[in-house]
């Protein structure tokens, strides 16, 4: 009987400090056993339990894309016991990852559709995975227009800055980057919050256009009326939830919203689904 709690052993290949406050680091992992990488076949929007031996596990969205081979990447905010220990670890250290877990973004539904990605702060990890996935030459033709709205407090708090700049130059994706404020005279993108930017530049909602929204609660709260005004139906607004988790497989009982587990039935739900469940997230 396979043990769903057993992590695959991995080696940290690289640690990248992403943000100016040094609280967000991206960890690139390589599987110690090559065959485990095949078993870890994942879709954008899924997550994994990062297992720091001796400390515990944390559920983290997968930031790399299924189209990137030979490694997996996670961007981790330093918050508690496990993430703090992880932030102290270095390339070469051995730990574990367990997954992939959860349901992913609905790629079968999104095929042939326009996709509007709206992200804020450090909730951009599985969105990065999705963008890399969609922009891959094998996949780009499967989608209509792709819009990305991404905001952070300051330029130095944006994740994946080099990639953002590169996407911004492409003509097969419309990238709108913004920061709450900056005193950088060379800042060439937007200044201001996500909701007004989306109101101005996002395409109107229709049957063929889906919005994926991930960000801090305050951004979500003020973005929803914008999407409502733009005509997005609630079953065309896709969100990824977070809750405290342990098992990641729907057994330990803590992450439920109503009868559904965020870990197993989610973390991705449509707003229409979320509206029919208790707001316990």
């Amino acid at each position: 009987m396979e043990n769903p709690y057993l992590p695959y052993p991995v080696r940290i290949d690289e640690v990248i400090t992403e943000t100016e406050d040094k609280n967000l680091k991206t960890f690139k992992f390589v599987f110690l056993n090559e065959s485990d990488e095949t078993k870890f076949a994942y879709r954008a929007g899924q997550f994994a339990e990062l297992s720091v031996t001796g400390k515990g596990e944390i559920p983290i969205g997968i930031a790399s894309s299924p189209t990137e081979k030979g490694f997996v990447k996670f961007t981790v905010n330093k918050v508690g016991l496990v993430s703090s220990e992880l932030h102290n670890m270095q390339a070469g250290d051995i730990m574990g990852i367990r997954g992939p877990l959860g349901n992913s973004y609905p790629w079968d539904v999104l095929e042939g559709k326009n996709v509007v990605i709206i992200g804020g702060g450090f909730a951009f990890t599985t969105l990065r995975s999705s963008i890399i996935h969609m922009l891959h030459p094998d996949n780009r033709a499967k989608f209509g227009d792709i819009h990305v709205f991404y905001g952070a407090r300051t330029p130095g708090m944006l994740l994946y800055r080099d990639e953002l700049a590169a996407w911004e130059q492409r003509d097969d994706i419309n990238v709108h980057i913004t920061v709450d404020s900056t005193d950088d005279p060379n800042w060439k993108y937007n200044v201001g919050l996500i909701p007004p930017l989306a109101e101005e530049k996002a395409p109107p909602g229709d049957a063929d256009t889906y919005a994926i929204v991930c960000g801090p609660p305050i951004m979500i709260k003020f973005t929803q009326p914008v999407l409502d005004n733009l005509g997005y139906d609630h079953d065309h607004i896709i969100m990824s939830l977070e809750n405290r988790m342990k098992c990641g497989i729907g057994m330990c009982g803590r992450c439920n919203i109503g009868k559904d587990f965020v870990c197993k039935d989610g973390p991705v739900f449509t707003l229409a689904e979320i509206n029919t469940r208790p707001k316990e997230y």
């Binding site: 709690y5 031996t53 001796g54 342990k246 057994m251 330990c252 009982g253």
Partner: peptide, 17 residues
């Protein structure tokens, strides 16, 4: 009731989950 928690515990170099 079946809900559970998972914890690591280490003594010296030896640990259990």
């Amino acid at each position: 009731c079946w809900c559970f928690d998972i914890q690591d515990e280490v003594r010296g170099h030896n640990g259990v989950r």
